[in-house]
Design a protein around this nucleic acid. Structure first.
Lengths: 151, 151
DNA sequence: CATCAACGGTGGCATATGCCACTAATTCAA
DNA sequence: TTGAATTAGTGGCATATGCCACCGTTGATG
């Protein structure tokens, strides 16, 4: 096969996913920009909000995110006063997270913008298509890609 | 709606996409690890390879990636001797990129691992499902989400 | 109780990605 | 031809994300 006819990145599941994530991420970020939050931050605040003062590990697991990455991502939100943490009294290894009143207000503000982004996304992509996409991505995220058992 | 019954992040197209990207990215990264390349780097080397000494802007456009982000991402690959750049003689604003022989060899090595990752992915997800996913993501990445014309 | 393994997070380092201000090269218009 | 507008990249700064080494807390065990 000549170099000129090699397929683009469309064949790679991961590359296609990243490309789409950059595109959609920019779109959601743009719409959320007036709130001063990135889409990732809005999502994180939301995740904290719907949890019951969740532990860091629980948040990381929900988001399929590395625990230390979560710690890093949380720092600007703590610095800006949207989020606060406290040790679990029953197990001081565990650090729980909650929104501050300021954080809750900021989340409300961001959610209004999120609804706009989400609605326009559904219009452009199509409601069914979007639902299918979320369903497939949700499924894929739950799968187990572990290497074949070394046994 | 009580806080306890709020939907998870499954409703947000962007959050679902990011979650899946983290998961799949880790999987592809794991499989590619023996080559010393991240999946993003392998994808970038491949994109450079299939281009005809592409300009930075052309690569960035193909990958729907910010031009400066591409510049940053390229640095480790240049540092490690996989890639080199040169000014377009006809327009010295344009910087073109090509693989070094070392880079080509590394890409070959990585592609072998990529095939393994890709094949296992298709097995676990299902060939049709994977193809559908790529098709939908490809479509979505091409869409225009611009804000309604200010006119 | 003393010890040691397991758990939960932190900090440092590295890549991934984006925005903005700025520079150099080119193009275009007066 | 010369100065304005455009184009292509760079560098700095900030967030996003992951890995690894390390540390304090807990829990299990002799």
């Amino acid at each position: 096969m000549s170099k000129d006819t090699l397929p683009g990145l469309t064949a790679c599941n991961n590359a296609t996913l990243r490309r789409a994530t950059r595109k959609i991420g920019q779109y959601y970020d743009d719409v959320l920009a007036p709130s001063g939050l990135k889409a990732t931050q809005q999502g994180l605040l939301y995740q904290i909000h719907i949890g019951n003062e969740p532990a860091m590990g629980a948040i990381a697991a929900s988001l399929i995110m590395d625990l230390s990455a979560l710690g890093h991502t949380l720092k600007p939100l703590i610095r800006d006063g949207y989020v606060e943490t406290f040790a679990d009294p029953a197990d001081r290894r565990i650090k729980r997270v909650r929104l501050t009143p300021l954080g809750l207000a900021k989340l409300d503000e961001a959610m209004k913008l999120w609804h706009i982004a989400q609605q326009r996304f559904e219009e452009v992509v199509g409601k069914d298509q979007a639902a299918t996409l979320r369903a497939v991505l949700g499924d894929v995220a739950e799968l187990d890609f572990d290497l074949p058992p070394a046994s």
